[in-house]
């Protein structure tokens, strides 16, 4: 895969920069071009918005059969996370025992290696989540 495909998503994946609709104030992550509530009115009014990185686990799974890019990494946890700002995203839970993970667990984003494009290709980084400090 070309490096550009990865490079252009860096702001969102490194720094959790999503979009906020100036009209209704709703925050979207992953970033969206149009607010599905305000639609036409939101065109050109979606501003960059950095998420706090704090969220709550709404559901989770432990992956035992991984896709080829995650070969050797299983078992690992994937969670549906509700961010403080109200939007949801999908990410891995790390830095804890798998059986500690539960629905309602408070988590915070951390910057990690996600996968690599073969042995010689680019290394892809982005967010994962760990148990929140407080």
């Amino acid at each position: 895969m070309g490096v550009a495909r990865y490079w252009r998503e860096i702001p969102a994946r490194y720094n959790l920069i999503g979009k906020k609709c100036e009209i209704c104030g709703k925050v979207y992550f992953p970033p969206r071009t149009i607010c599905p509530k305000c639609r036409r009115k939101s065109i050109g009014k979606m501003q960059d918005y950095k998420l706090s990185g704090k969220g709550t686990v709404e559901s989770y799974t432990i992956i035992y059969t991984p896709p080829p890019e995650f070969e050797g990494k299983a078992p690992y946890a994937i969670a549906l996370i509700k961010m403080e700002e109200g939007c949801y995203l999908t990410g891995q839970i790390v830095d804890c025992k798998l059986d500690e993970i539960h629905i309602g667990m408070k988590v915070e984003a951390c910057f990690r290696r996600i996968q690599e494009d073969g042995k010689r290709g680019a290394i892809y980084y982005g967010y994962k989540f760990r148990k929140a400090e407080s």
Partner: peptide, 24 residues
Amino acid sequence: REWESFFGATFPGLYALMARYHMH
């Protein structure tokens, strides 16, 4: 691909999230 699979979510994994949510 960009916001689910990229982070390691598999297709069965997404239905597993639904299953856990439904069970809970």
